[in-house]
């Protein structure tokens, strides 16, 4: 079955109020083209799941797209805190369900396997358990030891960015660190939307089946988006855009400047080519691929 869609069609699969599991680390591998399209389609009241969220979480908070975050951390690491997200949380507009890394893994692992919950020994003694209805203490029925039960989480849709895919939705990544986004997010989610640097003939995938990380039968949409993770890094293809991050952390302190920034980089560029031109065109891209 042909799964290729336009980015508008793919993001059209997401409805207001749903939960989106977003591939992301502080400055890495975020499907930013999909994030921009969520903002352009003015989605509202989405929940967002990340292990560690970066600039994407900041943008989605600033644009009023999300009202809850489920994950372990939000930060742009060397570039500092995500100040629009921070402001939204401090102002009560975004609610945070903070989970330890093993707890998020347990919630999604239970979701993937259609189990009611999975336990972890993490978090005992922390304040994370009391504030969260999706976590509770449980006696191990075999030994009586205390563990933390983590309720199943089934996101409505997972957003993934990959190096290549074929039209049937088979997805490959180059040898690189595999974050949980590939390990568990797509398996736990009801739908999977993938952007890929390139869409290739299936014969290309057959040369290195060991690099295929998602089978087409479990993928709902593929969209070709070169440099689709910019300004985050997508090794080995390109590194994170330092100048762009520095520009963002400056404007993110000010609401008006933030909206002007989103206007320039999110609302105005109608295509990926327009977006790449706006962020500095060939010159900038060449710097990032060096």
């Amino acid at each position: 079955m042909n799964k290729v869609m336009t980015i508008e069609e793919a993001v059209g699969l997401v409805s207001d109020g749903e939960i989106v599991a977003l591939q992301n680390m502080a400055t890495q591998a975020a499907p930013m083209a999909l994030v921009r399209e969520l903002i352009r389609q003015e989605k509202r009241n989405l929940g967002l799941v990340c292990l560690v969220g970066g600039m994407a979480v900041d943008w989605l908070s600033a644009a009023g797209v999300i009202d809850r975050f489920i994950g372990a951390a939000v930060s742009m690491e060397q570039f500092g805190l995500c100040n629009q997200y921070r402001k939204a949380v401090e102002g009560g507009r975004v609610r945070v369900e903070e989970l330890s890394e093993t707890a998020l893994n347990a919630r999604l692992g239970a979701g993937a396997r259609n189990l009611p919950f999975l336990p972890t020994r993490g978090m005992l003694g922390s304040d994370l358990i009391d504030i969260n209805d999706n976590l509770t203490l449980l006696q191990d029925p075999f030994t009586g030891e205390t563990v933390v039960a983590c309720r199943a989480l089934v996101p409505d849709v997972a957003f993934i960015h990959a190096h290549r895919a074929d039209a049937r939705g088979n997805v490959q990544i180059e040898p690189t660190i595999k974050w949980p986004d590939l390990g568990i997010f797509p398996k736990a989610s009801k739908k999977v939307i993938v952007t890929a640097e390139e869409i290739v003939d299936t014969e290309v995938l057959r040369r290195n089946p060991d690099r295929t990380v998602l089978p087409g039968f479990a993928v709902d949409a593929v969209v070709e988006v070169p440099y689709g993770a910019h300004p985050t890094s997508f090794f080995p293809n390109y590194t994170y855009d330092t100048a762009f991050h520095l520009e963002w952390i400056k404007v993110a302190r000010d609401d008006e400047a933030t909206q002007a920034f989103l206007q320039k980089y999110v609302y105005e560029p109608a295509t990926q080519a327009d977006y790449l031109a706006a962020v500095g065109g060939a010159e900038r891209i060449l710097e990032l691929t060096r």
């Binding site: 372990a72 921070r86 949380v89 330890s100 890394e101 020994r121 978090m123 922390s126 504030i131």
Partner: peptide, 21 residues
């Protein structure tokens, strides 16, 4: 107030696990 904090910091990441394991 956890839900209306003065400062929202990054979050626990792996700390709650490392502290308990």
């Amino acid at each position: 107030d956890y839900h209306r904090p003065k400062v929202r910091l990054p979050g626990t990441a792996g700390l709650a696990d490392m502290g308990a394991l």
